[in-house]
């Protein structure tokens, strides 16, 4: 277990860098986590995906949404999702949104 400090606040993250308790998530944390994943700026569309992922997890017992759940639910194309979160959107969205490592296969 490790902690990540963002603007003076310490967040507990696991060995793979996922936030341990999703309720401790803040927008500042998301911005910092995004930078670590190589995303310098989060646009409105990024936030649409992040907000959807958090809502989806809240109604699914904390499970991270699969990419297909995101494309269907946030009304975004697969192409756009991969362009917004390049090189591994499944993990990146979960990390930035402060959710667990995705477990679904689709």
């Amino acid at each position: 277990m490790a902690t990540k400090k963002v603007k003076g606040v310490a967040y507990e993250v696991n060995d793979e860098g996922f936030l341990v308790d999703p309720t401790t998530w803040t927008k500042e944390y998301a911005v910092e986590a995004a930078k670590e994943e190589g995303l310098e700026e989060l646009t409105e569309t990024h936030w649409k995906v992040i907000d959807f992922a958090r809502q989806s997890a809240a109604t699914a017992g904390g499970a991270s949404p699969t990419l297909r759940t995101i494309t269907d639910g946030a009304a975004i194309t697969t192409k756009d999702l991969f362009a917004l979160f390049p090189k591994g959107p499944a993990k990146k969205v979960a990390k930035i949104a402060g959710l667990k490592k995705p477990e679904g296969c689709v």
Partner: peptide, 12 residues
């Protein structure tokens, strides 16, 4: 299809 999709989701 399943493994390829998982790979893409993980940046492979």
């Amino acid at each position: 299809l399943v493994m390829g999709w998982a790979a893409l989701g993980n940046g492979i």
